[in-house]
Amino acid sequence: MTRTQVQIIERILAAIPIMLGVVILAFLFMRMIPGDPVDIMMGEAGGVTHEEMASLRAQFDLDKSLPVQLVLYLGRLFKGDMGYSLQRARPVKEIILEAVPATVELALFSLLFALILGIPLGIASARYQNSIVDRIGMATSFLGISMPGFWLGIIGIIVFSLGLGWLPTSGRITYGMAPKSITGLMTLDALITANTGALKDALRYLALPAVTMGAGVAAVVARVTRSSMLEALKTDYVLFAKAKGVPDRTVTIKHALRNALIPTVTVVGLQVGTLLGGNMIVETIFGWPGLGRIVVDAIFSRDYPLVQAAVMVYALTFVVINLATDIFYTYLNPKMTL
């Protein structure tokens, strides 16, 4: 085994206590929040007896002491049982598995948009530093960072759905157009089944939410690419290449970009975590059936098992992506150790 491999295994082992910690933290955290899940479950109807509520509480172990509940929960978790949702009357695992593909798809497309827009913008800004291109590009990127996502989303709906009628307001796919479900990612399924109609339809639904969510990331990517490009353009080997008479364009693309992309990769890694974990508002606006909306709803209705499981999924994603970027990173720059 190479040293890198050993390090990767070490990192994976180190992730286990983190995951355990996250689970326990989520568990305690949810129980600190005031509000009784059983009471919420009963809604507003009259004629609810205390016995009825007590029996429900017992059914979900909520009548036991906190440490006992935690032990019971962890015990089941090790057996792969994430519990039963208090509000949705279904096993938590089913709910999560159903929502994850939608969230992942949206995150991927947001990222794609961010990269397609951000990297060229960053390169152009660096290449023509302090020019009008640079100024406008960077000012736009600030706009992307500082405008709340829901505002951008609603503007998008008003302009592109209502005004121009190009895109649907919300949802994930037109009824009847959905491709056969293989991965759960509509676009990918459409590609696999060579269903161009479904692909087109899915992309139309994806466009607005992906742009809304990707705008902020695009801004960050553009800014990081710009600053690292500026730095890379000043390094000795780039200067040397220039002195040797290599054309400007070649220097920019071939020599500077490869190095400049290193920090961009890291940023992208961190942003994927954000995209997956911070998308609840965009999902709400666009009625996107993803995990973010479920989590917010679950917190507000004190659906303990569901929140705990979702937090676990987020944390796992975060850990995995961090590891992946680090590995990719060593690949780009072998000098670095994990």
């Binding site: 983190i18 995951m19 910690g21 974990g277 609840m280």
Partner: peptide, 18 residues
């Protein structure tokens, strides 16, 4: 590490509720 792995918005929503 633990805090970073915990989704920020969930954290803040919970904290505000508490």
């Amino acid at each position: 590490d633990l805090l970073l792995a915990f989704p920020y918005l969930i954290f803040v929503i919970g904290a505000m509720s508490v």
